[in-house]
Amino acid sequence: MSEKALKWTDRAVVVFAWSSAIILICALFLLIGSLLKNGWQTLGLDLIFGNAPPLDAILLKRRVFGGLFPAIAGTLLLVVLSVSLAVPIGVCAGVYMSEYASAGLRRILGLCFDILAGVPSIVVGLFGFSGAIILHRIFDGFRPCLAVSAASLAILVLPYLVRTTQTSMQGISPGLRITALALGASKMQNIVYVLLPRSMSGILSGIVLAIGRCAEDTAVIMLTGVVATAGVPGSLFGQYEALPFYIYYISSQYTDQAELMTGYGASIILLCVCLALFLIALGVRKGLSHQVFYRI
């Protein structure tokens, strides 16, 4: 290439890179901007509680109509259930992968987890759905419900938890690994007292991201028991409402401007939840003092 051509390639690449970055930023801000522009007026207690007094609604004294409270409560419950199902199993599996699995077993299990991580969420939902059908054959009257959704979501986030645990444990320096062993710690004591606390920030940020995925997922729950109106969930085996499904539902079924506005409001709330979780995950990674988790 001549010197001139080189100079022009140089310039073209710079322009290309800058404009890509600008396009991406603009798209993101257009997205968030249009949400805020259309939805900011709806933000307020009414959006969540409708006409009911907030305290009464939270204490379940009064049912909320026309507010997002049942959907928020549903999503919150769903997240708590699925994360408390998935975290113990996922973290234990990750510890096994990092500390005990032989090279061959690690490859096989690793492949399984990679495939599981790649399974589209609607397929995981379909799995939960077929599970519910089987349970329906055994127990009459069983149908897709909160418990089924929680179990399916737990499977959805399991591979992330395994991976984050495994990578953060494997990242521990060999020096720290043998310190406690040289002091007479058993393998289990070494894991419990030294390795796990040391990898806690990685594991925690994995958990926070798992919470995010459970809160935002729509495809899994739409096959496993979420509905548009169910009120605050009363039982594990009942149907329930959830924030992301509400947004989906409104986008196709809204009947008036007020409902559409609630949809915008719900989107803003969900986006803020995800932003908050993201910031927490970042903070946990960065600033966490490991000492907090050493308990003697």
Binding site: L31, S34, L35, N38, L209, G212, A215, E216, T218, P244, F245, I247, Y248, I250, S251, S252, G263, S267, L270, L271, C274, L277, F278
Partner: peptide, 13 residues
């Protein structure tokens, strides 16, 4: 981490 349902929602409107 932005929920895909939000991309969809903005897509619709």
């Amino acid at each position: 981490g932005v929920p895909t349902v939000i991309y969809g929602f903005i897509g619709v409107f």
